[in-house]
């Protein structure tokens, strides 16, 4: 690890000022991505600004939305009663991510900014990585990809966004609150991320120095059916091969509202708007679910090692749609 200056911030404005002032400064929250990548030699900031003592932890119900402070940990959010009652798919996604120890450290803001698990990105001895060294190529495409993206991916980069939490959050139209040196702004989470196929090295719309201060999650309407299914090799403590976050509002035998997020497949947490449109107005049933799943992955870009995900993602989505709607096989 490269040596760095360590500074502890106590006010949001101080933290933002410190990081903004130095191009090689970075925020340190839970550290689960930041320190890991510094040890690997992928990141080498000259200054770390510890933000864990900023007053940005905790949740607050604001009408039909839950405001989550960026420094709330994954475990804290999973234990939140509003989440348990009105956002069960968020709770499921949280508890299926990482391990308890990591969830006690990792913050909600940090989770949204977690970097890809691509081993070609995470090893600076690999010379080709468009994410690390723009223009150098992509070793993953030539290597042995499996835990990689098939949506929003191409020969330039197939890095997967591995967050579980972000999958239901994009489906729910969560809004990110950002503090920058010149003020605050808000952005819809699903607009927050860029595609690896288009810009491997720039992953989101944050400008250097900007800090996520919170996330606003609209609550599901009462009576909505929802769930999160994560498919992986191990039963626990593993990133998703594919996952599906689903919320449906069904009445009189018709789907009135559908929200679908897909994980484990996209270079960003994937909102499947076309699939949602396919479902709305249909009666819940295996046929409609299969149609929607086909639409959701129609733009997949695959390699021999990742092709199975196209089929698996569809089956995962169909299964979760069946489960939440109670439709038998």
């Amino acid at each position: 690890m490269r040596s760095f200056e360590y500074v502890r911030a106590t006010e949001v404005s101080d933290a933002v000022r410190l990081v903004s002032a130095r191009p090689d400064a970075a925020y340190l929250a839970g550290g689960t991505t930041q320190l890991d990548l510094m040890k690997d030699g992928v990141l080498g900031p000259g200054m770390l600004v510890d933000i864990t003592r900023l007053p940005l932890a905790g949740t607050e119900r604001r009408g039909e939305a839950l405001h989550v402070g960026a420094l709330t940990t994954m475990e804290e959010l999973a234990a939140d009663p509003t989440v348990a009652e009105r956002l069960p798919l968020v709770r499921e996604a949280l508890l299926k991510g990482a391990s308890t120890q990591l969830r006690n450290m990792a913050t909600i803001g940090g989770n949204l900014l977690q970097r890809t698990r691509c081993r070609y990105f995470r090893d600076p001895d690999v010379p080709k990585c468009n994410k690390r060294l723009p223009g150098s190529g992509c070793a993953a495409v030539e290597g042995v990809p499996r835990m990689h993206a098939v949506l929003g991916a191409n020969e330039r980069c197939i890095a997967l966004h591995a967050s579980d939490l972000a999958v239901p959050l994009v489906a729910l139209d969560a809004v990110v609150h950002i503090q920058g040196p010149t003020g605050e702004r808000r952005i819809l989470l699903r607009d927050f991320y860029l595609l690896a196929s288009e810009s491997p090295d720039v992953e989101n719309h944050l400008v250097h120095g900007e800090l996520i201060t919170g996330v606003e999650i609209p609550l599901l309407p009462a009576g909505a059916l929802s769930g999160y299914l994560k498919v992986r090799d191990r039963m626990s403590y593993e990133f998703a091969l594919t996952s599906a976050a689903v919320a449906l509002v069904i009445s009189d035998g018709i789907i009135h509202e559908a929200r679908i997020g897909l994980g484990g497949v996209g270079s960003r947490p994937w909102r499947a708007l076309d699939a949602e449109r396919e479902l709305v107005g249909s009666p819940p049933g295996t046929e409609a679910f299969r149609r929607a799943a086909r639409v959701a992955v129609q733009d997949a870009w695959t390699l021999p090692g990742t092709a199975f995900k196209v089929e698996l993602a569809q089956r995962c989505l169909v299964r979760e749609l069946r489960t939440v709607s109670g439709v038998a096989a």
Binding site: R117, R119, E142, G143, V144, R234, S236, Y237
Partner: peptide, 25 residues
């Protein structure tokens, strides 16, 4: 343990990538 075909580099040499059973398995 996966070896990259072109380079001979071990592609998954970490506990996050080389999976061994966890308690839940």
């Amino acid at each position: 343990t996966v070896t990259d075909p072109g380079t001979g580099r071990i592609a998954n040499g970490t506990f996050g990538d080389y999976l061994i059973p966890v308690n839940a398995d």
